[in-house]
């Protein structure tokens, strides 16, 4: 029990941060018209591609002789890039069609 309490204490900034972000996420898409649900889902999909930053950090710290880790890291960066680039481009293509006629 004390461990949990102290864990929260040491990480309080991040916990505040998480709680506020959760509410920002909810607020920011509240009241979106149905017509925009698909592009919005797709846009959000691109944003979680930020996980690629983690893959880059792994690669920067990887042991240069560990081929398993190198290949996994390489794969992770490829997949993360796919998520980011594909996500933003596909969202742009959808939204292009909503432009003013």
């Amino acid at each position: 029990m004390t461990e949990i309490i102290n864990f929260i204490g040491t990480h309080q900034e991040i916990i505040f941060f998480i709680i506020l972000s959760v509410f920002v996420g909810i607020e920011v898409i509240g009241g979106v018209p149905t017509v925009l649900h698909t592009p919005l889902m797709s846009g959000a999909n691109a944003i979680h591609g930020v996980v690629i930053v983690g893959a880059i950090i792994v690669m920067l710290n990887v042991d240069a002789n560990d081929y398993v880790a190198l290949s996994l890291g390489f794969l992770a960066v490829v997949l993360g890039t796919l998520n980011v680039v594909g996500g933003f481009v596909v969202t742009d293509r959808m939204l292009e069609m909503f432009k003013k006629k």
């Binding site: 991040i14 996420g25 959000a44 979680h48 930020v50 930053v53 983690g54």
Partner: peptide, 19 residues
Amino acid sequence: DNKVMLTGGILVGSAGTLL
């Protein structure tokens, strides 16, 4: 302890759940 991953991830997590 990477804040941009945290914001991006949590935003999508909460916005996605609401959606």
